[in-house]
């Protein structure tokens, strides 16, 4: 007998795959990687310069794609997953699923896995473009850079899917879930760094000293920032001096665990709420 959550994930995947949301995701990501990987080469050649076909240029393209991903992936992952449970609950589809053997836990885990895989496939497809461009223009495939770029992007996507599924499990309507994921996006991706900058500025002004460890940690706390720091540290080290921080709380393993925790903890908390509610 296959695991029931796996069966739920397979069915959810089969269903979500047919949604326009998935096609839009693949479209957005592919458009971005195409723009980032193809345009600079085309422009350089158009202006008659020879292509600087070195590893650094190529790395810069990957880094640019990761930077774009740090904004685009969070919002798309949240949108791709925020209805996974709240939507089914509001429509009554959850009754069909929960009348069958899967438990509420199977449903939460299955949805989380399915939507994470969906995001990862969209990201993977988009980076196929990068692979083609790398091989065609630069006659080289930087496997390690590619591995970390795609791997970390998928991990960040999974973190935001986790947040969205957790929220979806804990709310009773589409509107509530939407409001909460948008709030999360604005706080963690848009406002976090400026707010923290303002706060640390005030703290530094008041204390007349460098920002302390807590602020340095908070700086990388949201999943997109964790992703950025981890990316700089792992991929940046391939072409330049290592940027891994001396501080323990900003070391690679801690950042990695933090990113995984962002995926798992919200799902677990959402499940705890979902397990207790009356599904009327």
């Amino acid at each position: 007998m296959t695991k029931r959550w796996l069966e739920v994930a397979r069915k959810d995947f089969q269903y979500a795959r047919r949604s326009n949301v998935f096609l839009v995701l693949v479209g957005i990501f592919t458009f971005l990687t195409m723009a980032i990987f193809i345009l600079p080469g085309v422009l350089t050649v158009a202006f008659g310069d020879s292509l600087p076909a070195d590893a650094t240029t190529e790395w810069q393209l990957f880094q640019a794609s990761a930077t774009a991903g740090a904004t685009v992936i969070p919002i798309t992952a949240l949108i791709a997953a925020y209805l996974s449970i709240a939507g089914e609950r509001q429509s009554g589809r959850i009754r069909v699923l929960l009348s069958l053997p899967p438990s509420r836990q199977d449903v939460v885990i299955g949805k989380f896995v399915s939507r994470s895989v969906l995001m990862s496939i969209a990201i993977g497809v988009a980076y196929l473009v990068a692979v083609v461009v790398s091989v065609a223009f630069y006659r080289d495939l930087p496997l390690v850079t590619l591995f970390w770029t795609v791997g970390l992007s998928c991990l960040m996507a999974t973190s935001f899917v986790g947040l969205a599924v957790g929220i979806s499990a804990a709310t009773r309507s589409r509107m509530q879930a939407l409001a909460l994921v948008l709030f999360i996006f604005v706080v963690t991706v848009v406002l976090w760094t400026p707010l923290l900058g303002a706060i640390s500025g005030l703290v530094a002004f008041g204390l007349d000293s460098q920002p302390d460890g807590l602020i340095a940690f908070l700086d990388v706390f949201p999943p997109s920032s964790t992703f950025g720091a981890l990316y700089d540290s792992l991929v940046g080290a391939l072409v330049g001096p290592a940027t891994e921080s001396d501080a323990f709380y900003r070391s690679d393993p801690v950042l990695f665990v933090l990113l995984v925790a962002w995926a798992v903890v919200p799902v677990a908390l959402g499940y705890v709420v979902f397990e207790r509610v009356d599904l009327t």
């Binding site: 269903y15 047919r18 949604s19 429509s91 009554g92 589809r93 009754r95 069909v96 009348s99 069958l100």
Partner: peptide, 11 residues
């Protein structure tokens, strides 16, 4: 179970 107030997967 034929539940009450269910909905099908339209796709």
């Amino acid at each position: 179970v034929l539940p009450e107030g269910y909905d099908l997967y339209e796709r």
